[in-house]
Structure formats: structure tokens, C-alpha cells
């Protein structure tokens, strides 16, 4: 089972925008799901508007093979951005792929597994945990919208973004691993304030140290966005088959 999960999960490499992450096959038609923030560079302009730049050079590395991928989503649609998903197409017929779980049956305490390519690992890493809570939270991209997310204690860190969160017993996908739960307290706000102090530019090592600590200092809870948003994309079409 684990070998199949690993072959259905790939490392996403966006050469032109310098981003990497994880992703996975859904169905047998070569459709591949990842996070939107893995395949797009997002900036906020001087007027406070979100500007997106989608990668034009997306490659998926699975085991020994590397495949070129193209975006299936509508690049002008806000939906994939808000719900942080992207659908890619690979010109291969996947030998193994994931099925989608019946989300109405997912409950708090369910044992889950995250598969992905965190940090600088060159092969898929698997970690196990439970669904710690099912929460509706403001979108981390646009807080006007809320997203159904699975909070999990499964180990997820940088590079896991876009990978599948699957049921430990049946291997069916319930979510897209997206981001760690950041500590938001007074101490963190103070540290963030120090980073932006005038003159901190000349104290680069201290600033880098603060940024490094803030990046990896998490409590161990992570968020996976419900797979329902990608499945409901108008361009996704119908899914057939399974692992």
C-alpha cells in the first residue's frame, strides 16, 4: 500500500518561479492536484491588491521520472486562488492514483497519513497522525471566504504543500496538506516587529536568525484544505476508477 501511495505522489518543481512542493494523482486521466501557492508566485502590490504569476515551467518528479505538467484551472478564476488548489495535467497515464474519500464520513480522531516531499528530501516522506479537528477558517489568501480544513497533528512542513492527506485505513484522499498552524502571540509579534526595525538591514545575521526561527517554530498542528474544493472545480470533470 505504501509503495503505491509513494508512486501516486510527486514532487512539484516550478523552474521559472523557483518554487517546489508536493502533489498527487487523482483518477486515471493524468490529473494531478497540488496547492495553488506551489505553482504561482503571489505578491501584494503597493495598493494592497494580490498579483499572481503562474509558473509556465512546471515539472513533476515521481520516482526516477520527471514529467512536464500544464495547468488545467482557469488562470483568471479567483476560486483556485481563494481555496488554494491547482489542477495539473500530465501527459502520462498514472499506474496508481488516489481515490477521494466520502468526506461526510470523516470525523475528528480519524487516523490519517500525509505523503509528500518536505524540506530537501528527494523521496516521498510519510507521517502519521489524526484529524485533530475539522474547522471552518478564513482563507489564508482572502479572508472574506472561509475554507473547510482538517487540522492534524501529522508532521507537515515546508515542501509538503500540495501533498495528499489520506485515510490511514483506506488510503483515500480527504485533503491537500497546505500549511502549519503558526503561533500567533505577543512574543511572535514582537519578533516580527524587530525584523522590520530601521537599521535591521545592516544586522542581517540577526534578522535572518529571527526569520528562520519564526519559520520553523510551530506547535505541530497543521492544516489540510478539504479536497472538495478541487473536486468541485468546473473544469475538473468526472472522476473514475481508483487505487
Amino acid at each position: 500500500m505504501i509503495d503505491k501511495w509513494k508512486l501516486a505522489t510527486g514532487k512539484v518543481i516550478c523552474c521559472d518561479i523557483g518554487k517546489t512542493g508536493s502533489g498527487f494523482f487523482i483518477g486515471d486521466r493524468g490529473l494531478f492536484i497540488t496547492n495553488n501557492h506551489v505553482v504561482a508566485r503571489m505578491d501584494i502590490d503597493g495598493a494592497g491588491a494580490i498579483r499572481l504569476d503562474y509558473s509556465k515551467q512546471i515539472f513533476i518528479q515521481i520516482a526516477e521520472n520527471t514529467h512536464r505538467a500544464s495547468l488545467v484551472i482557469d488562470e483568471n478564476s479567483d476560486r483556485p486562488v481563494v481555496y488554494d488548489y491547482a489542477i495539473l495535467r500530465l501527459n502520462v497515464t498514472p499506474k496508481v492514483y488516489f481515490d477521494v474519500a466520502d468526506l461526510s464520513e470523516v470525523s475528528q480522531g480519524k487516523e490519517v497519513i500525509a505523503v509528500g516531499y518536505p524540506l530537501d528530501f528527494g523521496e516521498p516522506i510519510i507521517s502519521k497522525g489524526i484529524v485533530s479537528a475539522i474547522v471552518s477558517r478564513p482563507s489564508h489568501i482572502n479572508a472574506l471566504h472561509r475554507i473547510r480544513t482538517f487540522l492534524t497533528d501529522t508532521l507537515i512542513t515546508y515542501g509538503n504543500s500540495g501533498g495528499p492527506l489520506i485515510g490511514a485505513s483506506d488510503g483515500k484522499v480527504i485533503g491537500i496538506t497546505t500549511m502549519p498552524h503558526e503561533i500567533r502571540d505577543e512574543a511572535r509579534e514582537r519578533l516580527l516587529g524587530y525584523v522590520n526595525l530601521p537599521g535591521m538591514e545592516v544586522m542581517r545575521p540577526i534578522r535572518d536568525l529571527i526569520e528562520f526561527v519564526l519559520r520553523y517554530l510551530t506547535v505541530g498542528f497543521n492544516y489540510a484544505i478539504s479536497i472538495e474544493y478541487a473536486m468541485d472545480d468546473p473544469l475538473f470533470g468526472s472522476l473514475e476508477g481508483g487505487m
Binding site: A47, G48, A49, D78, N142, A143
Partner: peptide
């Protein structure tokens, strides 16, 4: 139309 971190314009 523009998207912002808190809504739309």
C-alpha cells in the same frame, strides 16, 4: 476587479 487579502475591489 482586484482581489485583496480581505475581499475584492
Amino acid at each position: 476587479k482586484e482581489m485583496t487579502p480581505y475581499g475584492y475591489r
